[in-house]
């Protein structure tokens, strides 16, 4: 195989280009056509192929400078990319809250509302607390049951609020995507998938481990309210984290060698 200087130059540029796959592919394709045209022109002027390629590359400009110019984005584009990624992760976060809340309800049905939502064993309510819980939960037979029922109701309101916010976020994303498709401009800037997946994996796995540990420590040391909630939320966060981790690993794997 001949030593193709233009191929080497394009490899160098590809390493330096940022942006979406479509943006990088377009820049690389335009650069290659330009360099080959330019080299052909130098060859018609009497240069040999190697010298013509060198001259074409020199006229085109060094790869770091051209890649840097190509990577430059307007602040509005960068802001939009961050908002888009944050909204995407936020949507998954709200979905995780919804799933965890449903599972927690299910867990309360098969175990006990007291273990899932209630005060830790041995917890002593003050008279004021007891009066408050019994006032807001008149169907309860004692302070412990009233506190667990109130905590359960609060968690339902929490998931309802999360679902509404999640639907609003999803609506904004879908609306923005429809608008983006109508605009006759280059692909909308977005953070690399691997970065978004890495942030998601770190956030969800971190939260999952923290919640499970909090539940376990609470179970051993006592004094923790809603031990079942902590476990359920932790497990759901871990599952979401593992999904993001798998997506991250898939995005950074090399292109399939089977095709080679």
């Amino acid at each position: 195989m001949t030593n193709d200087r233009i191929d080497g130059y394009l490899d160098d540029m590809l390493d330096r280009l940022e942006g979406t796959a479509a943006e990088r592919r377009r820049m690389l394709s335009e650069a290659e056509t330009h360099l080959r045209d330019s080299a052909d022109s130098f060859m018609r002027g009497g240069m040999d192929a190697d010298a013509a390629q060198s001259a074409a590359i020199a006229a085109f400009g060094d790869a770091p400078m051209i890649a840097s110019a190509s990577n430059r984005r307007r602040p509005a584009e960068l802001l939009a990319a961050f908002v888009r990624a944050a909204a995407q992760l936020g949507m998954y976060g709200f979905a995780a809250i919804g799933v965890a809340a449903l599972l927690t309800r299910g867990l309360a049905l098969v175990t006990s509302t007291q273990w899932v939502y209630g005060a830790p064993a041995g917890y002593r309510f003050t008279a004021a607390q007891c009066a408050h819980w019994l006032a807001v939960q008149p169907g309860a037979t004692d302070c412990h049951v009233a506190a667990a029922m109130e905590n359960s109701d609060d968690s339902f309101l929490f998931v309802l609020a999360a679902a509404i916010i999640g639907l609003i976020v999803a609506g904004v994303i879908l609306g923005a995507m429809r608008l983006a498709r109508r605009r006759p401009v280059r692909a909308v800037a977005r953070l690399p998938r691997s970065v978004v997946a890495a942030i998601g994996a770190t956030a969800f796995l971190g939260a999952g481990v923290a919640l499970v540990v909090a539940g376990a420590v609470g179970g051993i040391a006592g004094g923790v309210w809603g031990q079942g909630v902590l476990y359920t939320d932790g497990v759901v966060a871990l599952i979401f984290g593992i999904v993001f981790l798998v997506r991250f690993l898939l995005t950074i794997r090399p292109v399939s060698a089977a095709a080679a």
Partner: peptide
């Protein structure tokens, strides 16, 4: 530097 026209063209298009 001939390569600089492409980022400029992409900017004009955006």
């Amino acid at each position: 530097a001939e390569g600089t026209v492409y980022p400029a063209l992409h900017g004009l298009e955006s």
